[in-house]
């Protein structure tokens, strides 16, 4: 079974995001970018399935600017077999919306015919949490979102998935082929080791464009404004419990 893993290049989780002065979005000029952490977990899960003998090949796909090849190289170094880069933007500030991403992935999936798609549950930049679900609808495939465990039954074409839901866990079986979107607790991704990064340079990377696949990536949503959270006001140190109670009552008026 072939597994397809979409990976997105996003602002690095260590970077303090800053809104552009015109409010049109987050400033990404000169900012460190890396693989979306949820997608990294998806890549790791695919590799573990392959190591268990339950998958034959792992194909990673990224959609965006040309530099997205960096995150594909990371995924290849971790252990994916080959990569497809779909160039759909020439400016890093142009976010490709989930529907366009899902449409592009659908085209890729029609060519590649994977038995399973493992994706991150959402990208940490726009937090849409939509691509996996839309892809499932477009393909008519089953979906299992917010997964924390994934067991494949190759003989019966079934995946058993534990989902992280509000206040607990839910276990479901979905029929393959399926779209599984993964949550944080699924695994801890491995390091891309130096020898593997060297070897990954020789792994195949195919380049396409959104136009090649006949998908229009023109945004359908317009961003009205982007704002930073209000600055936190300085705290004060109180000297006693009674002073604290007094202030909560009379100044903050919360008790």
């Amino acid at each position: 079974m072939k597994i397809l893993v979409p990976v997105k290049r996003v602002i690095d989780y260590n970077v303090k995001a800053r809104v552009k002065s015109d409010g049109s979005g987050v400033d990404l000029a000169n900012v460190k970018m890396s693989i979306n952490p949820f997608d990294e977990i998806a890549v790791e899960e695919a590799i573990r399935l392959k190591e268990k003998g339950q998958a034959s090949e792992i194909v990673v796909v990224s959609i965006g600017v040309k530099q997205a090849q960096d995150v594909l190289r990371t995924a290849l170094a971790m252990g994916a077999d080959r990569a497809i880069l779909v160039i759909a933007a020439d400016d890093v500030h142009q976010d490709i919306e989930p529907l366009a991403v899902a449409k592009i992935l659908k085209k890729v999936i029609e060519d590649e015919a994977p038995g399973l798609v493992i994706a991150g549950k959402q990208a940490i930049d726009n937090d849409m949490n939509a691509t996996g679900q839309m892809l499932s609808a477009l393909l008519g495939w089953s979906q299992a979102t917010f997964a924390s465990t994934l067991d494949i039954d190759n003989d019966n074409d079934i995946a058993r998935v534990t989902r992280e839901i509000d206040g607990g866990l839910q276990t479901i079986d979905v029929k393959l082929p399926s779209i599984v979107t993964v949550d944080l607790r699924m695994n801890e991704p491995r390091f891309a080791s130096l020898p593997n990064i060297m070897k990954a340079k020789r792994k195949p990377m195919e380049e396409k464009t959104a136009a090649d696949l006949g998908v229009d990536v023109t945004p359908r949503l317009s961003i009205i404004t982007t704002a930073e959270p209000p600055a936190r006001e300085a705290g004060i140190i109180v000297n006693s419990v009674s002073e604290l109670v007094e202030k909560l009552k009379n100044e903050a008026e919360v008790i």
Binding site: E188, R190, F191, S193, L194, P195
Partner: peptide
């Protein structure tokens, strides 16, 4: 550790 990579 569990995901140790010795380097090169």
């Amino acid at each position: 550790g569990p995901s140790y990579e010795p380097g090169m």
